[in-house]
Nucleic acid binder design. Structure first.
Lengths: 356, 356
DNA sequence: GAAGAAAATGTGACCGGTCACTTATGCTGC
DNA sequence: GCAGCATAAGTGACCGGTCACATTTTCTTC
């Protein structure tokens, strides 16, 4: 009457007893490691089957000092990009026999960030992925402590101060790609709507855009509008700002699809046709981008690839702890790709001047 | 030179030695449980601080037989609904001091489903959430075994055969809500575009729609179109089928926002105005629904609430294992809500007859 | 047929906590 | 002055695996 709860699961020793071998032999069988004769193996397997034995991962972790668990501290995974990243990481982790503990932190509550990091420390995860575009000062301390003892990968975050591996989207390349596409379509007067400029990714995309223009000999022709957000309202506001300030442009590079969506709505509401009068290119390739009218030309970021790459970096580091973890930090860039649809066209003959 | 890797973390006994007490006293301090004098507590805390001691959750789990981990086996979390559910579950879990291991299974690869369930078994999770609309036969066996030993909650899945708790969106109520909204706006001839009818949720929404019509004395007036999918293409195809078959309707209830999107696109491409000529109501309230033109009136499902509820169900069951787990199974319905925007209006005076 | 290596198996400590007890001390009340 | 209890702390087994090493059996090889 000691444990009225579910009848305890069988242990390795019970299996051993039933098979008439030692517990260590059972261990050898379940780990397919070391010498075991075929007869014994069959014997043990049978006992396992009869008792319906499942090895206890926790006990395993304790004695082997490997939890086979990777931690992820990410932005809110309600956001599609992060969800994709998590899904990608997750798939790759399982392929490699690892569990994934995901912590989804809303952008507004950075105290959770720290709480999660501490939690991960207790859990003795084997590796950590941090996918927070902007990290909090106080979290950095904890993160540093963690990174000091286990392999850690940062995603789309610049924490170069810490000695982390990193995976990042090639944002600069993305900005270049988008802008070049506009230039190749014959546009010369180009505007851009950026995300919040305190996001490194927004900065990088902007730089990429400038780079593309410079390379095309179009110098500082870029009209820039920013609002503090990545959403539709921001796009609308930015577009109306662009027009009010009397800028001349035949194409717009919006740093997110939602910004593009807002910009297009604003344009259309003023009777400006897209892409007839103004071309628009977005960024992200959100699920509905292809269904918008016009279908949105945009830049696709393979976020699940990013997640998978991060996991691979970790498992590799775990596999060869070359000279006591002092391995070279690796930085990996993931390429973006252009998704051509209908929102970019050649500029109209006499490019109009747009203003309020 | 035994362990060239990171210098081992301090254990509870080392803390004890430094504080000059027994390991058990340290345990009492970190668990804030049992009698400890203030002086001793302070002493121990200091030692913990100096050694930078973090309790080892794995060892804890092993001896206490509680992993403080909940498992989630979900549909691919790239899908926004599931991502929201996961995020909601996650937040609630952390609030309650639990970890969450999320397994995201693509709809196409059901063998992963089983693999995950087995993995969870090894990990000795304390509770399980299954969020797969349709479970595979072979997974059911494993699931049954798990549910037999730990509390398990099914989300939006009808596995009544097994003795699981469940949380479900009130799909029938949702169908009723959407349809009633159309009726209240004066529509009498109503069509519906359903998701794949082998999804229980699609069935339930359809039933709800029928129910609303019956209640309004509109009998079997419902024109139903289905395609095998929930996406935009399906909506487009279904709408064109509806029109080809010469059905008369002034309003459409689409069982997902993407279906609605496709239906609207199809209508507009034929010069039918929404909501001028035909009203459309969707389901899901995907992020861009509010930005479509017209802004989509739809039914919102609080998926994060669903996830949180599932976690609560589990932690409650865990807290009182009333009479050895033979607790009554609980079934919880989560209410949906109407989000009124612009895609539903009163029908035009002489309702037109639409056909190819 | 002896020696040595390879194959097969067993033994007991250990991972780092918690659990169930035991022991010591200080107070209260009669 | 002592039973009886609350408070404070310690002891050693135990959770269920793996690890390091010891032991026994079976092949090779000369």
């Amino acid at each position: 009457m000691k444990r009225p709860t579910s009848p305890r699961r069988p242990t390795i020793r019970e299996v051993a007893a039933r098979a008439g071998v030692s517990h260590q032999t059972v261990s050898r069988v379940i780990n397919a490691d070391g010498y075991v004769s075929d007869a014994t193996r069959a014997n043990v397997m049978q006992a396992i089957g009869q008792l319906n034995y499942v090895p206890n991962g926790i006990a395993r972790s304790l004695s082997s000092r490997r939890s086979h668990t990777l931690g992820v501290v990410s932005n809110d995974i309600s956001d599609h990009s992060f969800a994709e990243m998590a899904a990608g990481a997750e798939l790759e982790a399982r392929r490699q026999g690892f569990y994934l503990i995901i912590g989804s932190v809303e952008d507004g509550s950075p105290e959770d960030e720290e709480a999660y990091l501490r939690l991960m420390q207790q859990r003795r995860i084997d590796g950590l992925i941090v996918a927070r575009p902007r990290l909090r000062r106080s979290s950095l301390r904890v993160l540093a402590a963690i990174a000091d003892s286990i392999p850690t990968v940062a995603i789309a975050s610049r924490v170069e101060a810490l000695r982390l591996h990193s995976v990042d989207i090639d944002n600069r390349g993305g900005g270049r790609l988008a802008t070049t596409h506009l230039i190749e379509n014959g546009h010369r007067a180009i505007a851009t709507i950026t995300g919040p400029l305190d996001w490194p990714s927004a900065q990088a995309r902007l730089e990429g855009a400038r780079e593309a223009l410079r390379k095309a000999g179009l110098g500082a022709q870029l009209a820039v509008a920013s609002t503090g957000e990545w959403g539709v309202e921001g796009g609308r506001a930015a577009m109306s700002e662009l027009m009010r300030s009397g800028n001349r442009f035949t194409a717009v590079f919006a740093q997110s699809d939602l910004l593009a969506l807002g910009a297009i709505a604003e344009l259309q509401s003023r009777g400006v046709s897209v892409p007839g009068d103004v071309s628009v290119i977005g960024y992200d390739d959100i699920p509905v981008a292809r269904y918008m009218s016009p279908a949105l030309t945009t830049v696709r970021q393979p976020m699940n690839e990013v997640g998978a790459t991060a996991v691979r970096l970790l498992t590799q580091a775990l596999a060869n702890p070359s000279s006591s973890g002092r391995a070279r930090r690796r930085h990996q860039l993931v390429d973006v790709s252009l998704v051509v649809r209908e929102s970019v066209a050649r500029p109209a003959r006499g490019a109009r001047r747009h203003q309020a």
